[in-house]
Amino acid sequence: MSTAKTERLLIADDDAGLVEAYVLFFEAYGYTVQTAVDGAGALAAYYTWRPDVVMLDIQMPGVDGHAVAREIRRMGFTPRPFLLAVTALRAPAEKAESIKAGFDHHFVKPARLPVILAAIASRPTI
């Protein structure tokens, strides 16, 4: 199943079962994965690890996913990380808020992991 990717993927979600499933899926495709259970942990991991892709839940304890995305974009690191919201928030206004916060995509749970994988694979490269 591996696509021989060496990209780093940070996943932050407060649902341990989902995180476990995400890790198994993306590691099978060759991604190196780190995880966080909240927004503060996601920011700390981002600062130290600088992943290529960041997949965030929006509704997490403490710092929410929108705040994490805004902070990552504020830092302005190059290359620019690919940000994905994977959330239960489904209203058009909530999707618009995700894009405004700096996300490249907004997926609604239960998100189909092959669709997320395809979005990552088709992103523009810098």
Rank of each mutant, 00 (worst) to 15 (best):
V68R: 06
D14P: 11
E94S: 05
A111N: 08
V63R: 15
A91W: 07
E71C: 00
A91Y: 08
Y31M: 05
R123A: 10
A42F: 03
G30I: 09
Y46K: 02
T35H: 03
D14V: 14
M1R: 11
F77A: 06
L9W: 11
P110D: 09
G17S: 13
F107T: 10
V33L: 03
L9Y: 08
G39Q: 03
V33G: 04
V115I: 15
K95D: 00
E94N: 02
R74W: 00
A4L: 13
T125H: 12
V63K: 13
I99V: 12
A96H: 02
R70Y: 02
P114F: 06
I99F: 13
D13V: 14
D15H: 14
K100I: 01
K95E: 07
E97K: 13
I116D: 05
L18Y: 10
S98D: 04
R50G: 04
P110I: 11
Y29R: 04
R74H: 10
P79N: 00
Y29E: 12
T125G: 14
A121C: 03
T48K: 11
G102H: 01
A111H: 10
A21Q: 10
K109G: 04
D57M: 15
V63L: 15
D57Q: 11
A119S: 14
V54R: 08
A21C: 14
L56D: 08
W49I: 13
A28R: 14
F77K: 02
A42V: 04
S122F: 01
R74Y: 01
A91P: 00
A42M: 06
A96R: 13
I11F: 08
A121N: 14
V33K: 07
P92S: 00
Q34N: 09
R112G: 04
M75V: 12
F107P: 04
H66W: 15
L89V: 01
R80I: 02
L117V: 08
A36V: 06
A12F: 12
R74N: 08
S98E: 01
L117Q: 12
V19D: 08
A67G: 02
F107E: 08
R70F: 03
R70Q: 14
I11T: 11
P114N: 11
L117D: 04
K109L: 08
A36P: 05
A40R: 12
I126T: 12
E71D: 06
G41W: 05
R73E: 02
R90Q: 07
T125F: 06
A111S: 14
A85V: 03
D64F: 07
I120E: 06
P124V: 12
D57K: 13
G17Q: 12
E20H: 15
A101D: 05
A45F: 02
E97P: 00
E27Y: 06
A91E: 15
G76S: 02
R112T: 03
F26P: 13
V54T: 09
T78A: 11
